[in-house]
Design a protein around this nucleic acid. Sequence first.
DNA 1: CATTTGTTCCGTACGATGTACGAGAAAGTA
DNA 2: TACTTTCTCGTACATCGTACGGAACAAATG
Lengths: 248, 248
Amino acid sequence: MADPTLPLLWRHVLPADDGAPKRGRPPRVSVDEVVDAAIELADRDGLAALSMRTLAEQLGIGAMTLYSYVASRDDLVVLMLDQVLGRTELPPLTGDLRARLTQVAEVQLADWRAHPWLLDVVGVRPWLGPHAADRYEWQLSAVEGVGLDDIEMDQTITLVVGFATNVVRAEHAVRQAERQSGQTDLEWWEANSDELGRVMAGRDYPLAERVGSAAGEAYQAGTDPRRELEFGLGRILDGIEAYVARPR
Amino acid sequence: MADPTLPLLWRHVLPADDGAPKRGRPPRVSVDEVVDAAIELADRDGLAALSMRTLAEQLGIGAMTLYSYVASRDDLVVLMLDQVLGRTELPPLTGDLRARLTQVAEVQLADWRAHPWLLDVVGVRPWLGPHAADRYEWQLSAVEGVGLDDIEMDQTITLVVGFATNVVRAEHAVRQAERQSGQTDLEWWEANSDELGRVMAGRDYPLAERVGSAAGEAYQAGTDPRRELEFGLGRILDGIEAYVARPR
DNA sequence: CATTTGTTCCGTACGATGTACGAGAAAGTA
DNA sequence: TACTTTCTCGTACATCGTACGGAACAAATG
């Protein structure tokens, strides 16, 4: 009944009750090496391209040997998540509420940008690992004592972190589409504008065309799509500040 | 160079330039039937469980026959996306900006809740299909004429729609975790609380524990996690309204 | 030193997946 | 009837996660 992955997740903070076994064949690698190698592969080629066989080859061991370190590929992904969260040193939160929440968003943004496969990690229970727990505690400390109740604190963090994640998701979707079709957004548009015009004959999308082309030009010129981050996070933080400052 | 899926996506609005071929063996099903059956299977078991073989069996045709209708599984998913978007009749947007954006969020929420596999559809270029285009136009009309420039209009829609999608993502993640482990959130917690306590010995997470248990109780009692929707969307709309009403 | 015991290692194998290939089947046309 | 055009689909291949069971190895034991 008890989840067998839990002790593995918390292996570094566990008391050395049962240290390394004295007898038996010594392991050739460690769980950390396995997980680190998996993270490296996922960083390079994405989570879908991470197979047990390629991971084993990377480590110089047999494919099935991996299963003496992790119970399954899904388990491995859970370990990867917590391990990669642990690499980021969470900076002390300073300044007012707005500044603190901005820091929370920026850490999320940087981590998910550096490891886009985190977008594909789903179905994991929150709280699971020590670094996830550390991070949640850190995030909550950004909104502690400002007048929100417990549930509102959770909702605020969910809102800000979810938005930052969505920014990365949008950025990643563009790269994904480019990789999939083998042509950049601009190339695709040029190659398909004729066909699109032919196909859309008779229909018109006045707003979509105007806004779409404006957005296309802007994102073309400014290589930095930080604009969406600024606008969206700006509005969210405005809303949160107003809520915290509301008369009660 | 031109994307061969485009004509397929727009097949219903295309002029009947080249109608059904007169000669040759007649097809046993139609593209719409294929896509509808795929949507049905994805609704039931998720996108990952949708295989070309099971889909073919559902349709009573051979697996490879599917490839005379769609170019690949990825293509099929693109068609599914646009087809499912087309099933929703977009209601006329009424009321003030806040009301209109709320309607936009609610439509997104309802559609993604009804078809959670939409969360897994990634790497698709926006604008692609007729129904996606219709919807984007409809969404933009909710913020037209309120004083936002083109880019801000796009960013506003992205913000609201992205938030609604995240709500569904959170709901779906819980179900996913339950299905994966075979036990509900509550059961898992009960089965693992001892182990968690043992493993977290020496560490404490004062905020996370307080907030986490409060959230757990609240979400337990209220079967409706509409709370997050209300709070998050409320703050976002507050921020947008304030921005629109800002002195200039 | 020989044997036992506790581990880890990993070759083989199975079922599932997407799909390339090419031959066969079914319709209209000549 | 023969030909052309179009759709159908059985077979095959590479790749995936991983169940199984014995081989390899190190320490403990005799």
